[in-house]
Design a protein around this nucleic acid. Sequence first.
DNA 1: AATTAAGGAATAATCGTTTGAGCAAAATAA
DNA 2: TTATTTTGCTCAAACGATTATTCCTTAATT
Lengths: 340, 340
Amino acid sequence: MQHKPNIVDIAEITGFSITTVSRVLNGKGEKYRISKATREKIKSVAEELEYVPNEFARNLRIGKSKTIALIVPSLKNPFFAEIASVVNTEVRKYGYITLIGDSDDQVENEKTELSHLSSRSLDGMIVVPCGEKWDHLVKVHESGLPLICIDRYFEDTSLSYVSSDNYEGAYSATKYLIDQGHTDIACIQGVRHSMPNIQRVKGFTDAMKDAGMDTYTVTGDAFSEQNGYLETKLLLSRGKRPSAIFAFSNMIAMGCLKALKEENVRIPEAISLITFDDNPYMNYIDPPLTCISQPVEDICKIAVKILFSHILDDDKTPKHVLLKCTLKVKESVKNVSYSS
Amino acid sequence: MQHKPNIVDIAEITGFSITTVSRVLNGKGEKYRISKATREKIKSVAEELEYVPNEFARNLRIGKSKTIALIVPSLKNPFFAEIASVVNTEVRKYGYITLIGDSDDQVENEKTELSHLSSRSLDGMIVVPCGEKWDHLVKVHESGLPLICIDRYFEDTSLSYVSSDNYEGAYSATKYLIDQGHTDIACIQGVRHSMPNIQRVKGFTDAMKDAGMDTYTVTGDAFSEQNGYLETKLLLSRGKRPSAIFAFSNMIAMGCLKALKEENVRIPEAISLITFDDNPYMNYIDPPLTCISQPVEDICKIAVKILFSHILDDDKTPKHVLLKCTLKVKESVKNVSYSS
DNA sequence: AATTAAGGAATAATCGTTTGAGCAAAATAA
DNA sequence: TTATTTTGCTCAAACGATTATTCCTTAATT
């Protein structure tokens, strides 16, 4: 037998019918009253032949692929790489496979990936959407393919989502800066229309207003290093420099660091820096960055759980979950209460 | 039409046969002399219905899946995340899909992934192997599934591989340390049996010997942060501390940093540090780490190219490619020539 | 007028599984 | 003994695409 063995081969060798073989191999032997002797014989032959079922034939027949797709803006961003890693691991626990798509933060790519992937009869989809429109996502979802958004999401839709409580996270980061005596704070935001960004801006401005402050800046338009770099350069060139910068992502923070270093502005002596997102490198950066850490692992686990409740239990009610962030105080924020 | 349209639907609507529809949609219209009018009609109907061929049926019939699998030791390691990102992008260019498997650096998982994935009639496979045995990989390859190793590989096999020239990289890093006046150097290695590690150790010791030095240490046994941390702790507790540490991976270097920080050992004043692997964070670490940068992007691109030459051109000759690394001098190595 | 060629499209088998329906023999009940 | 149930297993039709083979028109050639 040089070709890959299939159930027909096993049926011929054991002398039983294809049906019986299929049932035994699917663990439905008991249910269909196949005798123990038969079951064991079939199983042993299957093992001997190193039989591996052809997923395509199986998928074709039952219309399910045991495959879900994950679309992220960019795998190169460690934040999304971690998401990919966790989702991949969690999904495997259900015996499913994950296809990963990279949208490069372009809605067009997102759409292309969506249609590419959907030719593979997916059973579900997890998306970190990158656009400001979501018709295409809702359409997919309404066509019967369970879809859940993580990190970025949309309100007022039938789509489930799991994300951080960005408002609260930004609020507490800002409050922390204020408590440390900062009065002139600039925040460098990410993609403007994205929900995390909207919430963060809101959290930031609310915290400022609640503290009765009005000298603040909100600038920037991408979660990228480049944006962080350019905006920081601009901030530094202003007449009066802010005393603290709030970067809305780890990539933005990298850009800030680059710019601050270039201009020889010491952190936190000359300017304080706080950022969204945490990762192992943060501890070794000069100085270690105080940050708002998102519960990435939990977000992914919950998202996968919800997705499978949609897939397996046919539970269609949209679920909306926001998880608390944690403020991790390190060394990039200076207390200026007394020195100013 | 509420269900997903298939070629039968299109055949019924247009009034042509399934055969004709299939041929037109596969671009074989000309070849089979289907009239232009017919072709256009079929195409327009297909478009209108948003027809997407069922890949499973297609794969089942033709035995190809337009899918390749990538197995990496851990997606959480930015080095492998980058590999995943690039491979994914490159593979898409051929119209193929990438399935990503995470072996968590355990051969057992690698084998499980291998069999899991192979039930999906893969067309090819890219593996960063994690074990010291490769029978299972060769077996897969010899069973007709093109397989290529990247980063880690094995000599004397029929498997193709693409990797860095680890020997040369380690040699030049070591030489650099020596040129800076270091005489007592410790290197913290990764997984011992892995080829990159073997080559790096060889590069390191050869460079030391060529310079007539014999006070060096080779220690450690994993590419992990933990290993870097523990080994550095041990090194620091020795009577005579080395003047420089050579970390064999970015994760190991993180561990070193952690230990050095804990012990208040200043880099590079008290001890110099050089590491394998580069990434954006390296520039913002305190101090920026001098490193050996691997051409990850090129490695992946070449690997994908070779893989597809195996898949598409049926070119079975094993290819072995090693790419040069680059020494990136930053600020973590002190010149001790004159000070000692 | 008969034969051949070429254009254009259909029939039906096939890929490897799953599964509703069904059937013969053995065991049990009446 | 006959009727009923249980046991153990099989038939054959899907799933949606591909493709070798065959078939029917016309048009061209002999």
